[in-house]
């Protein structure tokens, strides 16, 4: 399989497919980072507050890296991508938009499911034919490894804790799972990306993800939801009301004066 040493080596169809992929990755990380940052000052204990906030910053940093790569492909400005779009222009999964509702169990479960999806995808992207993307995936490996350790540890502890904690976590899993499957909603770029060796098919990644999360959820004593229909739509801009509300909050300062220099 030929490799693309630089972004300019992509043809037009591959370039559009790469932008589609990078937009999904960047938007997922930005919105997940923002959601998790909503715990700053509210997390159960100080140490966790700092750790969760720091990981939220990591995700926003990853979003910035993806937007920078989009900038090199399309000329779009990273800040405008992050703050200058309406909800329908975002390509994040509904999973990251789901409100926290001050439910710590749900949020650490989501963090685990999300970071396992990132780990599966980034591990595959380390071998991407698109060399700059493969290099970025390797650079993010350490932070993602830590995120996964964190999420896994919390899920195992809450799942094996009191009946109350266990039941809440189980309810959170039923709520989260269909949306988590939506992380692997295939787009029109799916075949192009796989054929060009840039990123595997979404259904392949979903299978890998399921075989990675199921044993951990089992160790946490949780029932795995069966015959679940994925909640799709985010990858084509069909976004829930929750994302609109999140963006109104996140973009409020930017929208006062989009041309302001910081």
């Amino acid at each position: 399989m030929p490799t693309f040493e630089t972004l300019i080596e992509l043809n037009e169809i591959e370039r559009d497919a790469a932008i589609d992929l990078l937009t999904r990755l960047g938007d997922d990380d930005l919105i997940m980072g923002h959601r998790n940052s909503e715990w700053t000052g509210l997390a159960p204990i100080l140490e966790e507050d700092i750790a969760f906030s720091s990981m939220a910053q990591d995700e926003m940093g990853h979003a910035q890296a993806y937007y920078q790569m989009i900038h090199e492909l399309s000329g779009d400005d990273p800040d405008t991508l992050a703050f200058g779009r309406g909800p329908r222009a975002y390509r994040c999964s509904s999973f990251v938009s789901l409100p926290n509702e001050r439910d710590w169990g749900f949020c650490v479960l989501r963090q685990f499911l999300y970071d396992m999806a990132e780990t599966v995808r980034l591990t595959a992207l380390e071998h991407s034919s698109l060399v700059p993307l493969a290099q970025l995936a390797r650079k993010l490996r350490g932070e993602e490894k830590y995120h996964l350790m964190h999420g896994r540890s919390w899920v195992l502890r809450l799942g094996n804790s009191t009946d109350d904690a266990h039941q809440r976590l189980q309810a959170a899993l039923y709520k989260a799972y269909p949306h988590a499957l939506g992380l692997f909603e295939p787009t029109s770029a799916d075949v192009t990306l796989a054929q060009a060796g840039i990123c595997p098919r979404e259904e392949d990644l979903m299978r890998q993800w399921e075989s990675a999360v199921v044993p951990v959820l089992g160790d946490a004593g949780l029932e795995i939801p069966e015959d679940v229909q994925p909640v799709n739509g985010g990858r084509v801009g069909r976004q829930p009301e929750a994302l609109k509300e999140l963006l109104e909050n996140m973009q409020v300062v930017y929208n006062i004066d989009p041309s302001a220099k910081w």
Partner: peptide, 20 residues
């Protein structure tokens, strides 16, 4: 120092408090 439920969780929390 950190507060933690157990040693493994202490390592996870210590990483962000003291090594970031």
């Amino acid at each position: 120092s950190v507060h933690a439920t157990d040693p493994e969780m202490a390592l996870i929390l210590a990483k962000e408090q003291y090594a970031r």
